[in-house]
Amino acid sequence: MVQINFARREVNCKIVYYGPGLSGKTTNLEKVHEFAPKEHCGKLTSIATEGDRTLFFDFMPLNIGTVAGMNTKFQLYTVPGQTFYESTRRLVLQGADGVVFVADSQKDKFDENLESFENLRRNLKENGLSIEELPLVIQYNKRDLPNIVDVKTLDKALNADGRPYFEGVAVKGTGVMQTLKAVSGMVLETLNTRHRKTRRRPTPDTSAIEAARDAGKTATKEWTQPGPQLIGAGTRTARAAAGSARSAATPQTRRTDGHSRQDIRRGVPGEAFPSRADTSRFPRTGDRRPLNTDTAGRDTRTIQRFEQKKTNGIWIAAAVTVGAAAALVGLLLVLFS
């Protein structure tokens, strides 16, 4: 699902690499990360097993820069290809704006390709997407290996709709960029089409937009709705509970191509802390002192414990005094009787 954020001046699109296990989906992402200019690539994140097989997804943001005043980004994902990660594949496919199907050209993988393509069709449908409407590009990968199926046969089996396709040798980077450019272009075209179709009526004040466009800025249409209603804060009881997440370990098939993943960290500088808003209508005054401290910085929990002990001590002393007095009276009565 394309996200258009006029406040952040951003357009975000999601592209998913799909295909059978070990067909080269992750390698495609690695090569994009390797060959694209560093200033346009974010960190390549892999949630993989020790055997370098994708467990959940690989992810890499590709920022193509400012287009018509909007910072345009593609979020590139891969799915785990192995059969038993069916539900994970469906999750990653959610909200996809475009799909690259990476097919393995080897003869013994032919059936796996067909099965995976059908799986793609089924999972898209379950996510409310149609394979016929979604931008889709096919890459016939591993064209440098012996015992491969010819492209014509592959295309006949997988590409009945006549989608754009590319021959690739992903480990060498061949066909990787062309594939990505093709699917990205199709997504961008769809974005324009969708916008045109979904406009309910012409924008009345086009002069402002034109003027902003001329000035190289993006015109934005703001809401006229009043601010949000305040909801009484502090009226609900906090439920203290803690949980922890644990990833499940599953027996894996190790990669055999010796192609390890990259893990390049690149820090993104943050923004300044926002200015404080008026919080006078809330129960607390907006100060940021640590919890359970008073204005003098003393730990209120310690003070409370001390007060409690003091109270308990007074009661114990009183009880002991009363007891001693009773014992004394008893003793005197015994003596005088």
């Binding site: 200019p37 018509a68 345009t72 990205s184 075209e189």
Partner: peptide
Amino acid sequence: EETPMEQGFANDAKDKLNDIL
């Protein structure tokens, strides 16, 4: 109402993609 994207947004973006990739 929808705020329209700039005219030619897709073409400009594709040009950028060509520059990068």
